Computed example of a mutant assay.
Amino acid sequence: MQLSVGAPDGVGRRVVGVFSQVEGEGVWTPHASGVLSADVPVVGEGLGVWPPVGAVAVDVGGVYERLAGVGLEYGPVFQGVRAAWRRGDEVFAEVALGEEQRAEAGRFGLHPALLDAALHMAGVGPEDEEPGPARLPFAWTGVSLYATGATELRVRLSPSGAEGISVLLADTDGVPVASVDALVGRPVAAEQLTASSQLTKDSLFTVEWDRVPTEGMQGAASQVQWAMVGSDDLGLTATLEAAGQDVVSGPELATLAGSPDVVLVTCASESDSGAQDLPSATRHLAHRAL
């Protein structure tokens, strides 16, 4: 999977896109696009009164069995619904991450498994109601994030327009975490969900780093081509050459001749970065390293 973020326009908005490919084929298929902005609207209310006044408790013991019946089989990481209530057309729920996922919640604006679980009760009607086809989130409008790193949420799902729902997510004190003005689902047949099941049903994608092979490099040091990009404030070039190594250098990666085996870049703060505060200098250096 791949997420792209474009350059900001004149008012600070960026176009974002989500793509995927089957490993080995090399063709990226677009799945979603949207607009990202740093502006966050003021949220009007929270969920401080809990359980909601006038709401009737719902038995959630068979929620994931009912969802599996329409083709939505959620693995253990995503089975986060803990309790639910109904009040007219509104649905309220408590969702939480499992113990193993709580430690990584701070890495996300909103943990994907927690956000997914917050929407599960939208697909579960009353027990005496015949279940309809599975609906997957399709069009999101007005998504706002107010806080990060949540591990538990209070959820309110309300009708919005002819086919959509509005979503309000709050922490365990009722303080808003995120909101969605309107979310429209797309009906999906059960056979569509299982047609290309190349992944385990509890898959959660993460960043994967490719390890550079080092076998044979030490034993064949004389054949290794080293390259130094940019300044060499630490004197690495002289050290390598003194050890009999072949070193080329250039101001940028694109200026290097040939295909070096190992490329070295000095990741040190620039001379003027001392005037910056530590967070700004850190961001600047991390951006330069990337």
Rank of each mutant, 00 (worst) to 15 (best):
V22F: 13
A227Q: 01
A150F: 11
V143T: 09
L145S: 12
A113P: 05
H287P: 00
E73R: 13
L168Q: 12
V63Q: 08
Y146F: 15
E90Q: 06
G235M: 02
A150Y: 06
G46N: 03
T255M: 04
V56G: 01
V180N: 00
T239E: 08
Y64S: 10
S166K: 07
A134R: 05
P8G: 07
V212R: 09
P137N: 06
G123V: 14
L236T: 01
V16Q: 01
T266I: 10
V143D: 10
G235H: 06
F108A: 00
L115Q: 08
V11Y: 13
V177T: 07
A7K: 03
V212Q: 07
L36Q: 01
V27H: 15
L153M: 14
A139Q: 12
T237S: 01
A96L: 08
E130V: 13
L72F: 12
G132M: 09
A190I: 09
C267A: 11
V184G: 11
Q218T: 06
S280M: 11
G80C: 10
T194W: 14
D232S: 05
A93N: 09
Q225F: 01
V35Y: 00
G24F: 14
R283K: 02
A83Y: 00
G250R: 06
S273W: 09
R211Y: 08
A7N: 03
V27K: 14
S197Y: 01
T151S: 10
P51C: 07
V27P: 14
V248W: 01
G98E: 08
S158A: 08
E104P: 09
L199M: 13
P279D: 03
T266Y: 12
G6A: 02
L115M: 12
D9C: 01
P260H: 03
D232I: 03
S196Y: 04
A38G: 08
R156S: 14
L145P: 10
V43P: 02
A289F: 04
A189C: 12
A134L: 09
S271Y: 06
A268S: 11
P52N: 01
P112D: 08
L256S: 11
S222F: 00
G80M: 11
A178W: 00
A122P: 10
V81P: 07
E130M: 11
E152T: 13
V63R: 11
E45R: 11
A221R: 13
V188I: 07
I165K: 05
S160L: 02
H120N: 15
A122C: 07
P126T: 06
A139W: 14
M228W: 00
